[in-house]
């Protein structure tokens, strides 16, 4: 056999190997919970109950007299707009109520347009648009989950009129 009984080297080696094994084990660290994404396939924008803008599966749906772009008045705010989302059947679903999900946006030209939220709407899916100068730009509407975007629209054209 490799080791003589009671030999110092044998004990040293056995202890060392055991130590290496224990160190090498690692632990079943508590895992971050496997989380669900919020994955709608579209949205509608509602103005006083009127669903005047619809975006679904990567395209703006201007059928039925709906708008193919958004209008923002110069130096004024639009009325209070709310967002409802669309699932993979095109049915409306409410925005997520978990505070980890936030409404965010990306404007191509911030000198033309800004988004305004009422104090109690911050992070929620309600907003106003305000035109800063006459012109055209685009806005991408997003649902941000933690630090990543779970949902985003294509850049939606916005016209700021005089």
């Amino acid at each position: 056999m490799f080791f003589r009984r009671n030999s110092f080297q044998g004990i040293f080696a056995a202890v060392a190997v055991l130590a290496l094994f224990v160190i090498g084990c690692g632990s079943d660290d508590p895992m971050a919970h496997q989380e669900e994404h919020f994955e709608p396939e579209g949205l509608v924008i509602i103005d006083s109950g009127n669903r005047f803008f619809r975006y679904y599966r990567g395209q703006i749906d201007a059928s039925g007299g709906r708008a193919d772009h958004l209008d923002a008045p110069l130096n004024e705010e639009t009325p209070h707009w709310s967002i409802r989302f669309l699932d993979d059947h095109g049915d409306e679903i409410p925005p997520p109520d978990d505070p980890d999900f936030k409404f965010t946006w990306a404007i191509a030209d911030n000198t033309v347009l800004e988004v305004v939220q009422d104090a109690d709407d911050v992070g929620k899916f309600d907003f106003h648009l305000r035109g800063l100068k006459a012109g055209e730009t685009t806005i991408e509407l997003q649902v941000t989950h933690g630090d990543h975007v779970d949902f985003r629209t294509i850049p939606i054209p916005v016209h700021v009129g005089e």
Binding site: H37, E39, P40, R57, V149, D150
Partner: peptide
């Protein structure tokens, strides 16, 4: 092989 299908996921594009 994972191949680009040319399609996009509509939630995250």
């Amino acid at each position: 092989a994972p191949r680009n299908t040319g399609e996009i996921n509509f939630a995250q594009l």
